[in-house]
Write a protein that binds this DNA or RNA. Structure first.
Length: 217
DNA sequence: GTCCAGGGCCTAC
DNA sequence: GTAGGCCATGGA
């Protein structure tokens, strides 16, 4: 597994893969990017930052219809308005609106609190834990499952938690490693396997055993 | 016109 | 417990 990532890192240089000015901006992005391309999310975040300083209380104080207009480009704007406000309510009630206070707790505890928020599932919670709070948690997305099941990996349980356990037991317990590996997977899946369905020669050679990897289901 | 993206919830069986 | 429908814009 580590060799796979080493090879990926020789191909791609990832500089600031999740760009954001603050921890809270990453949390907002994690919700907005649900099943949505990042280019659309960027438009929504730009709108939000023009309209307000990005803080939980400011989002909560924004009328729903205005918030919907601001995040409109990211799609699902009604559900995401609800989800953003649910996140902000939790931030304020549990952590007094302070990401710093949130970060003090063990990640397992934060994860439970995040999963309690309507609209935050395991992937979004782990996005927040890893990228916003720098906690050593590996993010499992569809790309990861597809690529690694084709590479012959299979977790004990074919579930989010099963895949997560596999990666967290196989890689060094280090948030920077997890960030790099996750972003390399997504970058590879998007830029190479998707845009060039048949990559010849496959830049991963023997490591990536699927030179014609396509992101079919 | 079709496909799908840096998911998750709800409902029905 | 799980399969299927639903939420929605924008780029390829």
């Amino acid at each position: 597994m580590e060799k796979y990532f080493n090879n990926l890192s020789k191909i791609y240089s990832l500089d600031n893969w999740w760009p954001a000015a603050s921890k809270f901006e990453i949390m907002v992005g994690a919700i907005l990017t649900q099943n949505t391309s990042w280019s659309n999310v960027e438009k929504a975040i730009t709108n939000l930052k023009k309209a307000m300083e990005l803080e939980p209380l400011n989002i909560l104080n924004t009328p729903d219809n205005l918030l919907e207009t601001l995040i409109y480009p990211s799609g699902y704007y009604k559900v995401k308005t609800r989800r953003l406000k649910a996140l902000c309510e939790m931030m304020i009630s549990e952590f007094d609106g302070s990401e710093h206070r949130m970060q003090q707790l063990p990640w397992q505890e934060i994860r439970t609190t995040l999963l309690d928020v309507n609209g935050i599932g395991p992937e979004t919670a782990d996005d927040i834990l890893l990228y916003a709070l720098h906690k050593p948690v590996f993010i499992i997305d569809q790309y990861t499952r597809r690529i690694f099941s084709r590479l012959g990996y299979s977790p004990t349980y074919d579930s989010y938690d099963g895949w997560q356990e596999l990666f967290m037991q196989s890689l060094p317990n280090d948030a920077n490693v997890f960030k790099n590996c996750h972003s390399l997977i997504v970058h590879h899946a998007q830029n190479l396997c998707r845009k060039i369905p048949i990559c010849e020669p496959c830049p991963l050679k023997n490591i990536c055993q699927f030179p014609n990897l396509q992101l079919d289901n």
